[in-house]
Amino acid sequence: MQEFNSILAGFGGQGILFMGKAIAYAGLIDGKEVSWLPSYGPEMRGGTANCSVCISEEDICSPLVTNPNVLIAMNLPSFDKFIDTVVPGGTVIIDSTLVSKKVDRTDVNVSYIPATEIAESKGLKGLANIILIGKLLEQTNFCSYETIEKTINEVVPARKKNLIPKNMEAINIGMNYKN
């Protein structure tokens, strides 16, 4: 993709901000300009959380994304808030475990994936966000598979390095999931 302007949104605690950092890091590995901008608020846990991530060949003018071409929604309030802001032709990825609604727009490419449910059932609790990155990769090719492997190796904290295989498993599940 030439310009990647995304909004990732859900509840605090779902790893929304981490998901954003991972996507931005992938852009960084590919030598592109990137920015990651979180929403921040008084709720440390359980409140709404979202972030804007931009990846671009050129300098990023506005790191605040208002009209994304990629939206990942991990809960209903986020879905309702952002679905109409997506530009025509944009990509929308929805965690259908947590968002029961369907998109009524026809000008965007929508993927429904019950990421939270899959994560629970496959022993990947807490990695729904990574499954969604896998789906994002399959839908947009925003970076190569090799880049994602490198990214996972870099962004998983040192004390959790044993979880790298599980993260890659989550990526693969996301990539191979068919609606």
Binding site: E33, V34, I60, L64
Partner: peptide
Amino acid sequence: DGLLGQMMEP
């Protein structure tokens, strides 16, 4: 400002 303080860039 809060935007620059909170955002991440390389």
